[in-house]
Design a protein around this nucleic acid. Sequence first.
DNA 1: TTATTAATTGCAACATTGTTGCGTTTGATT
DNA 2: AATCAAACGCAACAATGTTGCAATTAATAA
Lengths: 132, 132
Amino acid sequence: MKATRNTAAKTAVLEVLEKSKTALSHTEIHKQLNDLCDRVTIYRILDRLINEDTIHKISNLDGTVKYAKCNHSHQRVHIHNHAHFSCEKCHEITCLETVKPSYIMPHNYKVNEINFTLSGLCPKCLNSNINF
Amino acid sequence: MKATRNTAAKTAVLEVLEKSKTALSHTEIHKQLNDLCDRVTIYRILDRLINEDTIHKISNLDGTVKYAKCNHSHQRVHIHNHAHFSCEKCHEITCLETVKPSYIMPHNYKVNEINFTLSGLCPKCLNSNINF
DNA sequence: TTATTAATTGCAACATTGTTGCGTTTGATT
DNA sequence: AATCAAACGCAACAATGTTGCAATTAATAA
């Protein structure tokens, strides 16, 4: 495989994702970096980080794509099959690392990966709705 | 609510989706209609069909968006919370109407909708892999 | 430290997907 | 047949992602 380098831009992208509690879109990352590097460069860095298994990509119900740092802390083999929550009000996406769905598949399907996204109201927005 | 009309284009779009065993993208529908109507018209028809609850929209892991006819046959109240299977080889998306995941959520989240997509190999592609 | 070289970057151009405004056409109703 | 709002086509635009290429730079060896 190709050697991969640590560049200022890559470090900065990773730092932004590390600091964020929620998954971020390409545009959000670009804004936070404040023209440190080109739009295209960010796409390429995100691709590299995904290949390195440092971040993962989340496709939301509404078609938006977000990125989040992987949590490798507890497993030796990293599995992406956790759930994501997408808030309908604030549009934040959070990883629900502890939520793992169980399900029964029909025969003759080979499942390699699952994507489980729930949407509704996150705790923050749920609380601010109490006054309704 | 606004009155909705039956037009040639709407009938044709619905027919294409009815005949298809798998979910189709906007582009795929457009090609099948063979310039019966404008690209934009198809987007508007799809929006209307979703509002009428005749079809549903599926966002795939890779960011592609597909549409499929709803199966209203057995329930009085139609629920979209079934799973979808996305084949990594032929890229077809099929509705797994019988697969409903069970899961345990953390407190303080209000779940309104769920999206459960599994990817891997569909029965067709799994069989053609036997010779490997 | 300097030279080497392949990975990375910036820029421009392009592709795809989806949206909006507006004048025209058309389906359903009277 | 007349009415009129829904639906349409077209042009223009916006957002998101990709590609080719020349210039720059990080990591390695000399």
